[in-house]
Design a binder for these strands. Structure first.
Lengths: 144, 144
DNA sequence: TTTACTGCAAAGGGTTTGCAACATG
DNA sequence: CATGTTGCAAACCCTTTGCAGTAAA
């Protein structure tokens, strides 16, 4: 498993993009988080990065598959490291009240059932399924 | 199974809200769609409804559980009829290119596996899980 | 006759972009 | 040096809100 930053630099290079201190800092922040972060949360932790640059960097990093955009319950964009960089496959618990997103490990049994269902759905609908997303929506301990 | 509009009126009444022609038209549009619609799509089909009213009505209908907001891959809000009004439980195919969301029927096997996984996750994380969401992300036939 | 609803227009908030300066390969 | 990147500020777009008028219980 290569270093996250080395791999990030590689993936950016494939798009003729550079791995600048700005982008490195964003990746570092996401690598240190145990849940997807909003742009606000990111720039709060990395105040040296201007908001506009954060938006641009997140777009580029997302294009390069270094990070991934996560859809929550609200329209606030959240970001996490790409799964193949961060470690293991996981899903999300989403609080319908405050919008917080928490990671949760995937279960093999569930993954197997999902793989079957995805195959069937793809055939039926002429979709080419690349990935899946399972969200459990409810109330976090703070909002119950 | 009562009529959709009767049931919608009931649920609104429970919140001291009225089932006006505006709201009825929105429900009618969503009832006739076979996939979640964006606000733009809704007002395109129902031009008599001003945009600001559409936003307000969708909020109220959503609070009353007549409709449900659906998160796609982008930040565009999409809406569909509540599942208990529209018929059967389903999941979504999301095109990562154009953002379109298509309904797909749920499989019993998948639901069972998910129920187990949700139980485990809820216990671990102190979440109170109310519903789940399964999205298959890929390319629709148009965007392949 | 009280309370909810509507529609317009203005305000708001998050995101994107133009541009000139800078940095990197 | 050619191209990608940055930071500021302005522009943008979608969504929300104030308000005065309307309609429904």
């Amino acid at each position: 498993m290569p270093d996250i930053h080395d791999e990030a630099a590689l993936r950016l290079a494939a798009l003729d993009q550079r791995y600048t201190p700005n982008r490195r800092e964003i990746v570092q922040v996401l690598a240190g988080a145990e849940r997807p972060l909003t742009i606000n949360e990111i720039v709060d932790v990395a105040p040296s990065v201007p908001v506009s640059s954060a938006y641009r960097s997140l777009t580029v990093l997302s294009d390069a598959q270094v990070i991934r955009r996560v859809a929550g319950n609200d329209d606030t964009g959240r970001f996490e490291l790409a799964e193949d960089l961060s470690g293991e496959h996981h899903h999300h618990l989403i609080c319908s009240n405050c919008g917080t997103v928490v990671d949760v490990a995937a279960s093999p049994r569930l993954e197997k059932a999902l793989a079957e269902a995805a195959k069937a759905a793809a055939e039926e609908s002429d979709f080419e399924v690349h990935e899946h997303r399972i969200d459990l929506v409810g109330r976090c301990s703070n909002c119950q």
